[in-house]
Each structure stands twice: as structure tokens, then as C-alpha cells.
């Protein structure tokens, strides 16, 4: 985390420094340091209530941080909102559409609000998905509505995409397509995306980095491949040497309690120096371990 953030600040598209956000007594974000490198697609993962949405909202200047700050493409959104938001394409969690306005009206609205909005691009995307432009947006299916929100966010051609669970409502095919579009956008336009999600398979398909939030803090922030490499899943009684326990949860089949271990930084690649291919842990297990950690031992108390 720390080392990572320091190294990539210069090329980071989104940075959070000591970011804290409280709602009355509830701490949603607790001194969060996060750095999303330019050109990456970072998954923001964490249990319900971890602060993912809050973090994204702070980046949108919808919430004012209690301490610390964020920078979107080098601009503090709380101080220079217009400049910051011009660089951002945003899809809120459960995006709403204007009742009574057609899909085309939404694109016209986006055009009238955002000078750089590429309506043709958004239109093409919606066409490909077979979403009729003259249909009233409030009659679209949940997934189609999400696609409209996405098309608008991508139509801004923004440098930074902040997507709050954009895949939650999409069917598997639409998810696959969306991920492809996102990858294309990032590759061809050099955009950066921060995408919150609970669906690990999507994270694996779409993202190259993983940031795990838990209890308002960043628990993990590294490339996917590093996350797999630096964690091990074993029985609770057989820890890998020098590893620290992250969390325990019921393994597949519900027979055995498994524990996720984070390997010591020194031998961080986890290989014992003998095997040719380094041993890795599935991303799902890594995520489960951290989610379980957030609940203390609650991970043991399913059933």
C-alpha cells in the first residue's frame, strides 16, 4: 500500500491522502490512502458498508471529507469542482433515469450539460445493445437502464471513470460486453477506471488492480497478480512460515474452516525457490479472507 502509493503518485489518475469521512458517529472512511495508477482498471472491493460508495462520492464532490483529500487527475474536486468533474465519467450505484424522458433525451441532456459529450459514441453503444433510442428511459429494464448510465459515463470520454457497481444489474453477456468496452476505452483512450464490485469473476476479467476496503480502511491495494501471489489459503493450524493471518471463513462445501494468510514481505512471491511456476491463491479466496477479516470471526458463524 504505502510503498505502492508513493511510487505511483506521479502517474496516478486518482489519489486519496489520509481521507476520512464520518457520518455523525459512523466512520465511513478512516484515513484512507489510495492511489489508482493512470491507465489501470482498479477494482474496489469490500463488504457492504465498507465505504466504497462514500469514497467514490467524495471523488465526485458529493461528500465533503472530514480530513485528508482526494485528487482526480491532479485536481481536488472539493476545491475545483468543475475542473475535476470534467475529467470524470460517473455511474452511481443504482443509477436513476429521468421519468418521462426518452433515451435520446438523456443523450441530449448529457450533451447540453457536458460540452465534450460524444453523443454519437453513446448512441452507437446503445444501438449495439439493441436499446431503442426513442423508448422512455423509465420503461427500460434494470439492466438496460444501467447500460444507459454507462453509455452516458463513457460518452463523456473522461480520463477517469468512477463506476459504482456498474455490473450489478447486468446479465452475464452484457457484463462480458461491458467489460470489453471498458477495456477498449482504457486501452484506446488511456482512461483509468475505479470500479466497485462484489463479483469476483468480473473483477478478474476486467481489472488489473485490486483495492480492498474494510471498516473504512484500505486493507489491500496491489496488482491482481500480486494479490494472488502474496496470499495463501490453508487450514487454520498450518500457517505458512512468517505469514500473518488475514481472516478465516468456511471453505467450499462448508466442511472445513480455511484461513487466508498474507505472506511476509521478504518472500513476497510465495515461491519456495524450487518450483518453476509460483504458487498462487484464487482471487475469490483472497477477497473472502479480507471480507471475513472485516467481520472478526463472523466468517466462522455462517449456518
Amino acid at each position: 500500500m504505502g510503498a505502492d502509493a508513493g511510487a505511483s503518485t506521479a502517474t496516478a489518475a486518482l489519489v486519496a491522502h489520509g481521507l476520512s469521512k464520518r457520518f455523525r458517529k459512523k466512520v465511513a472512511l478512516d484515513s484512507v490512502d489510495l492511489s489508482v495508477p493512470a491507465g489501470s482498471i482498479t477494482a474496489l472491493v469490500g463488504p457492504n458498508g465498507a465505504g466504497k460508495t462514500t469514497l467514490i462520492r467524495v471523488c465526485m464532490a458529493f461528500e465533503r471529507p472530514n480530513a485528508g483529500r482526494v485528487e482526480v487527475d491532479g485536481v481536488d474536486p472539493w476545491r475545483h469542482r468543475s475542473e475535476a468533474l470534467r475529467r470524470v465519467g460517473y455511474v452511481p450505484q443504482a443509477p436513476a433515469v429521468y421519468r418521462g424522458l426518452s433515451v435520446e433525451d438523456h443523450l441530449a441532456m448529457a450533451r447540453s450539460l457536458h460540452s465534450g459529450f460524444d453523443a454519437d459514441y453513446a448512441r452507437r453503444r446503445l444501438d449495439q445493445l439493441g436499446i431503442p433510442l426513442d423508448q422512455r428511459a423509465d420503461t427500460l429494464s434494470g439492466g438496460q437502464g444501467a447500460q444507459l448510465g454507462l453509455a452516458i459515463a463513457l460518452g463523456t470520454r473522461a480520463k477517469v471513470l468512477l463506476l459504482d457497481e456498474p455490473l450489478a444489474n447486468l446479465d452475464p453477456l452484457a457484463r462480458r460486453e461491458f467489460i470489453q468496452v471498458l477495456l477498449d476505452a482504457v486501452r484506446s483512450e488511456g482512461s483509468t477506471a475505479l470500479l466497485s464490485s462484489h463479483i469476483v469473476t468480473d473483477v478478474e476479467d476486467a481489472c488489473d488492480r485490486l483495492a480492498i476496503l474494510g471498516g473504512g480502511k484500505v486493507r489491500l491495494d496491489c496488482p491482481l497478480e500480486e494479490a494472488r501471489r502474496t496470499h495463501r489459503l490453508t487450514d487454520a493450524d498450518s500457517p505458512p512460515p512468517g505469514a500473518t493471518a488475514v481472516g478465516s471463513f468456511l471453505g467450499k462445501g462448508g466442511q472445513k474452516v480455511m484461513t487466508l494468510w498474507r505472506l511476509a514481505a521478504a518472500g513476497a512471491d510465495g515461491s519456495d525457490g524450487q518450483s518453476a511456476a509460483p504458487e498462487t491463491t484464487s482471487l475469490e479466496d483472497v477477497v473472502l479472507g479480507y471480507l471475513a477479516a472485516g467481520r472478526g470471526t463472523a466468517g466462522l458463524q455462517f449456518n
Binding site: 465526485m60 469542482r81 468533474l85 470534467r86 460517473y90 452511481p92 433515469v97 429521468y98 463523456t156
Partner: peptide, 10 residues
């Protein structure tokens, strides 16, 4: 719908 418009408008 405000987040949609406010995000677009800046």
C-alpha cells in the same frame, strides 16, 4: 437523478 446531472455538468 441529481447525481447524474451534477456529475455531467460540473
Amino acid at each position: 437523478t441529481a447525481p447524474l446531472s451534477w456529475a455531467l455538468s460540473g
